[in-house]
Amino acid sequence: MKPKIGLITLGVSDLKRSLEFYRDGLGLETYGSDPDSDVIFFALEGTWLALYPKESLAKEAGVSPNGEGFPGITLAHNAKSKAAVDEVFAEAIAAGAMAVKEPKDADWGGYSGYFADPDNFLWEVAYNPFIDLT
């Protein structure tokens, strides 16, 4: 297997609301998405992000859509500085994200904070002074 994640699909409860959050709030550009379709694609650097109705995604995977609690995964956006973390975090909150953990110095030596998108997917915004993950 090639060591690369090609696509991350988020099963969302309200496609229109999530589209507005990611496109209009965070400024991600849609790519090749028909506005009447039930899937939205965003081309990111090195991977893709897709939004798809949660019920449909669960049905496609053959699992129950009734999940609870922390799913054991977070998504991350890495920034070049502490100030950039603060800017991205503020942008997400202004777009309607819920602050989960305000950005601060982290135990591992970096700087990070967490927000939740409209479907409670956790995003970390982080600055890592040891390795450039931007």
Results as ranks from 00 to 15, higher is better:
A92H: 01
D86A: 08
I73V: 14
P118I: 11
T47K: 12
M1C: 03
G6R: 10
M98F: 07
P53W: 15
F130L: 06
R23I: 04
L49S: 06
D119W: 00
N120C: 04
E68V: 09
N120P: 00
N78K: 13
N78Q: 13
L44M: 05
M1P: 03
I40L: 11
W108S: 03
V88Y: 04
S33E: 09
D34I: 11
V88L: 07
D132G: 00
T134Y: 05
G69E: 04
Y52R: 12
G46Y: 01
G69W: 05
I5F: 01
L7C: 09
S18G: 10
R23Y: 12
P53S: 15
P53L: 14
E91K: 00
A95D: 00
L133D: 02
A79F: 01
L133H: 09
V12L: 05
K104I: 07
D117A: 14
S33I: 11
E20V: 13
S37I: 10
A84S: 13
A90M: 06
S18H: 06
Y52I: 12
S112Q: 13
E55Y: 10
L122T: 00
F130W: 05
Y127M: 03
A83R: 13
L19M: 09
A99T: 06
Y111N: 03
L19Y: 08
D34E: 05
V88H: 05
Y114A: 00
K80S: 02
G62I: 08
L44Q: 08
A61D: 12
N120D: 15
I131H: 00
L15V: 02
R23G: 13
V88A: 03
Y127F: 03
K101I: 01
I73D: 06
E91I: 02
T134D: 14
A50R: 03
G69C: 07
I8A: 11
F41E: 09
K4M: 07
A79N: 09
W108C: 06
Y114P: 00
K54R: 15
T30C: 13
G46N: 13
K82I: 09
E45L: 12
M98W: 11
Y111Q: 01
V12N: 06
T47V: 12
Y31L: 05
D107S: 06
T134A: 10
M98S: 15
V85Y: 04
V63N: 13
T47N: 13
T134S: 07
A50G: 05
T9E: 10
D132Y: 03
G25Q: 03
T9L: 10
E87G: 08
D38C: 10
I131V: 07
Y114I: 00
V125Y: 00
A58V: 09
A97D: 05
Y52C: 10
A79R: 05
M98K: 14
D14I: 15
L10N: 10
L15A: 01
N128W: 04
D105M: 12
G109W: 07
D24Y: 08
E68Q: 09
V100Y: 03
R17F: 04
P53V: 14
V125Q: 01
F41V: 01
V125H: 00
G109F: 10
A84E: 15
E29S: 03
P35G: 09
S37Y: 06
P118E: 12
